[in-house]
């Protein structure tokens, strides 16, 4: 897993507070992505074309266009060239809209941050001609846009993100299950959520997604206060989702909170490792480009490529 704090310092990104001043989500995404692109030397996703992999012996019926005539000249045998085809990526952005995402210790909430992040990812992926879909959910799926790459799709996606209202509580299991069932074509699933729910509630469905062949990346969005629990005054704490109120003295509760939080995070990480899900924790005070960079770097370093659905061009 990537250490976000180090990458944050290494990039000369725009501060999220400044970004959040911009009202238009599309513009935000554009600024984030363009800033990110300018700092990128080479896009691993850019400039791919048909790439040769190996040969196989010609059989009758194969398309003669793929016959390697040079090799035939050298060896006098018919060989068919096999290529690895670069298809467009299908990416599903899953954005958690539950009440807990409405929390924010600064000027903006986690939800705003998550939306901006999702918009930036969508913009970025769209730019490299990938099909991007969007699913917003609370305890149920709120909006769902299937991945497409066509004119106006990005705009629609942005509008949906902008207008989505928050759901009720965080219940990952139902939306994940629904997505796993409805999305038949394999692709990349980016889950943007605070995951402030019991681990057991979503493990099964994450696994299910994986078994359906999806690549899953979790971008866990958290407010710095949620990580550190820095409160000074004792007061009644109200749960944004359940409305439950308990009296908490931060002085005495902070240690226990941090411990509980860490255990929860560790559990998630362990499970993600087990089932092969990429997991990143992103604090809302970090620049949004970090998320993009982390996503790309981690995927590049892990050796997995986004190339999917190996296909042989030529005669079957």
């Amino acid at each position: 897993m990537a250490d976000l704090s180090t990458t944050h310092e290494s990039t000369s990104a725009v501060s999220p507070t400044a970004i959040m001043q911009i009202k238009n989500l599309e513009l935000r995404a554009k600024i984030v992505v363009e800033g990110f692109m300018s700092g990128l030397h080479r896009s691993p996703y850019h400039g791919f074309s048909v790439e040769f992999t190996d040969y196989r012996q010609y059989t009758i019926g194969d398309d003669l266009r793929y016959l390697d005539w040079k090799l035939y000249a050298k060896q006098d045998r018919y060989y068919i060239k096999r290529f690895e085809d670069e298809t467009n990526l299908r990416c599903y952005l899953l954005v958690d809209m539950s009440h807990s995402m409405g929390f924010g210790s600064g000027d903006y909430s986690k939800l705003e941050y998550a939306k901006t992040m999702a918009a930036s990812l969508a913009w970025f992926l769209n730019r490299q001609r990938d099909a991007v879909g969007l699913v917003t959910f609370g305890d149920q799926i709120v909006d769902m846009i299937p991945p497409r790459f066509r004119a106006g799709h990005l705009r629609r996606l942005m509008l949906t993100l902008e207008n989505s209202t928050s759901g009720k509580s965080t219940d990952l299991s139902a939306p994940l299950e629904q997505i796993a069932q409805t999305v038949s074509k394999r692709g990349l699933v980016v889950l943007i959520s605070d995951l402030l729910a019991p681990v057991e509630s979503f493990v099964k469905n994450l696994n299910y997604l994986r078994t359906r062949g999806h690549e899953v990346v979790i971008l866990r969005t958290l407010d710095p206060t949620e990580i550190e629990f820095e409160f000074d005054k004792a007061s009644l704490f109200r749960d944004l989702e359940t409305g439950r109120e308990i009296y908490v003295d931060p002085q005495s509760a902070v240690a226990e909170y941090r411990k509980g939080f860490l255990e929860h995070e560790t559990a998630i990480k362990e499970i993600c490792d087990q089932i092969g899900v990429d997991f990143f924790t992103i604090s809302t005070d970090q620049p949004i480009e970090t998320a993009l960079l982390e996503l790309i770097q981690s995927r590049a370093s892990s050796g997995r490529s986004v190339k999917r659905a190996t296909q042989v061009r030529g005669a079957q």
Binding site: H99, S100, M101, G102, F103, K110, T170, D194, L196, A197, P198, D223, E226, F231, K233, A234, S235, L236, F237, R238, D239, L240, E241, T242, R244, E245, I246, Y247, V248, D249, S252, A253, E256, Y257, G260, F261, H264
Partner: peptide, 17 residues
């Protein structure tokens, strides 16, 4: 009795003091 109310995203890691 203490006054004021703080909203927090989730109370799953908190216990009442």
């Amino acid at each position: 009795t203490p006054k004021g109310q703080t909203e927090f995203s989730s109370l799953i890691f908190l216990k009442p003091s």
